[in-house]
Design a protein around this nucleic acid. Sequence first.
DNA 1: ATCAATGCAAATAATTTGCAAAAAG
DNA 2: CTTTTTGCAAATTATTTGCATTGAT
Lengths: 157, 157
Amino acid sequence: MPKPATQDSNEQSSAFRSFIAEKGLRATRQRMAVFEAAQGLTGHYTAEDLLKKAKGLDRTVSRATIYRALPLLKGSGIIREVDVGRDHKYYLTESGIATFRAQLICESCEEIIEVDAPFMEWYGKAVAAKHGMRPISQKLQVTAICERCQKRKPLRP
Amino acid sequence: MPKPATQDSNEQSSAFRSFIAEKGLRATRQRMAVFEAAQGLTGHYTAEDLLKKAKGLDRTVSRATIYRALPLLKGSGIIREVDVGRDHKYYLTESGIATFRAQLICESCEEIIEVDAPFMEWYGKAVAAKHGMRPISQKLQVTAICERCQKRKPLRP
DNA sequence: ATCAATGCAAATAATTTGCAAAAAG
DNA sequence: CTTTTTGCAAATTATTTGCATTGAT
């Protein structure tokens, strides 16, 4: 019999708890609420979205706490930051598998699509190595017009 | 006998003049000073750097004019914007050849190196096509530790 | 007890914008 | 003349930060 879905969050939860424990930090009520909020969100969300969700779990969570928790969630691999040069950044709750992702960004409807781009990892490493650099991370973003927008009047002319 | 170097700026200058003329805009003194300032800068520079340089050519150039001129310079292909997620954006005056460039960013000393990555263009197009999208532009950024920083105490530990 | 973490509100800082005056065509 | 462009200063807005208080260990 498979584990109930809620176990996922609990397993991730202990991963997060040990991450902060290792750093000598504390598992506060607010911090854990932000964590749970992240687990409850899908797709790209903003810090503000996360705040709203976290507030729903614990009314005492403040915006400052969100911004202070984000680096911890990123550092523990619970979430990933997606910066496509807009006014605010996006976040994405990671599923288990951590494959290399690129962003396909529709210039018309502004949708952001995460796509697997495993080859990129190799290519980025190769580019870095060619210049004697030790690669850490990489980002590939393709701006384009999505299928739907090609077939209709542009939303942002 | 080769043309004097200053001719380059004049040729680019008429390219810029026709770009703004086509759009029904006006070749103001300040606008042209910003253009000349861009021609006089090398490497990555900020809007503030451009302002300083332009002010040296025409004291009446204001910050607002810089920000209003930047989209024109970008649109005419005179400069390219480089956004690596820092607090301010960088700009780069384009030489004639417009090859696909990636950025290698040293996480330690924060240096940004522009590198040719011609294969990326193909790969980005392939990724877009696979999702039925029509590609417009793409960005590849590799964060790494540069050779020099590997051999010394990190500047940003 | 300790010292990290919190909420609040003020600070930050690049970029944008409203407006009346100046200048390009 | 007409319309665009300008400088100025104020606005915008995501994120950061100082501080007194609270809470985890």
